[in-house]
Design a protein around this nucleic acid. Structure first.
Lengths: 194, 194
DNA sequence: TCCTTAATGCGACGGACGTTGCGTTAAGAT
DNA sequence: ATCTTAACGCAACGTCCGTCGCATTAAGGA
């Protein structure tokens, strides 16, 4: 393997600075929301100098991208409940929880994605990864013979989860967890009847 | 009716200024996209002074809100194709067209809605109005006896249109018109089978 | 036509934002 | 323990953004 050059310095101070900054971002986000999030505010709260933030993270969206990636669970995979409907409900509940959390990192990154291409790409990557992993739910159902072969996994997941995003993020209106469940059942229904 | 006081002055010059400004907004949007949209840029292109823009529209999102409302068709109603499936396909094609247009006013206003509460409220009002009008499609289907009574119109419309918004706006990936049609058919399928 | 007064144009100001040059600290290697 | 050098702290600078006071224009009524 190519050892590369000194590979920068992920050592103690740098890591501590990053932790302090990301904690401050989350705190500011909780108190003031996305539009109140500012580099100077994060610098003041974290005790890290402005210049350092500008150098390492460049922008506010950059901070949120790092927060998203720091919170990403590399081992995540969808729950196995034994049925397609149950699996989809579990997925929808996770989406619902992520979007109604306060503060919602996901909502903040979505907002950021409309301001810089970097944030948009980071979010796209994150979702591509999640959708790819979640496709396992569909494969399991296919192995159990629950659904017609050739069914498009992405389209099915879109039918299940898109209504939650649309209602909570774009329409900005409430959606209860039972309603989120209902959309999962609807999606499962289609998959079972080709 | 209450004639009210002088009711400001919607006269010639003011109207001309507004038309010039909104045209400039659309042009700038087409050339540079939302993140490149700036008050000074619009002022320079329209020939209207900066101060006037700040006074009448306050912010960039404010400009887009006005553009959205100027383009809103007060007489809009969903096409009547004779079947629920056909009606939903027609709706989905309109949504698809609005989101893939270049420049897409809708996409720009969505972006703006994450920056100021005013834009968010304007967008919510716009969609509430559209969803309320589109519910006519469901009522017509009910009158024809096509679907089970008590079906929630909003949930049905959400199932049909949400995947398009999610794919094109949040996931930022392409969606063909046939795919948009397919989501309409899926939604119709659920409505017909309770 | 003249008068009143919104609406717009104009210049300048203050503040927030992002950048730059340089000194200081500490991580990691010897 | 010592050295090298990323990473960070610090202060100052230039730019962009939004606001304010005042002059000018023109819409709508008398």
């Amino acid at each position: 393997m190519t050892e590369g050059q000194h590979a920068s310095r992920p050592g103690g101070r740098t890591a501590r600075v990053r932790a302090d900054v990301l904690a401050a971002v989350e705190a500011e986000l909780a108190e003031q929301g996305y539009d109140g999030l500012t580099i100077d505010g994060v610098a003041a709260r974290s005790g890290v100098h402005r210049t350092t933030l500008y150098r390492r993270w460049k922008t506010v969206p950059g901070l949120l991208v790092d927060l998203l990636e720091a919170g990403a669970d590399d081992a995540w995979e969808p729950a196995d409940t034994g049925s397609l409907e149950g699996d989809l409900i579990a997925v929808n509940r996770e989406v619902h929880a992520a979007l109604t959390a306060r503060p919602s990192i996901t909502q903040a990154v979505i907002a950021a994605s409309f301001r810089t291409p970097e944030a948009a790409e980071a979010l796209t990557r994150f979702w591509e990864d999640r959708y790819a992993r979640t496709a396992l739910v569909v494969r399991r159902a296919a192995e159990r013979g629950e659904l017609a072969p050739g069914l498009d996994a992405h389209q099915l997941l879109l039918t299940a989860t898109a209504p939650i995003y649309h209602q909570l993020v774009l329409l900005r209106q409430p959606m209860s967890r039972p309603e989120a469940d209902e959309h999962a059942r609807t999606a499962a229904l289609i998959a079972l009847r080709p």
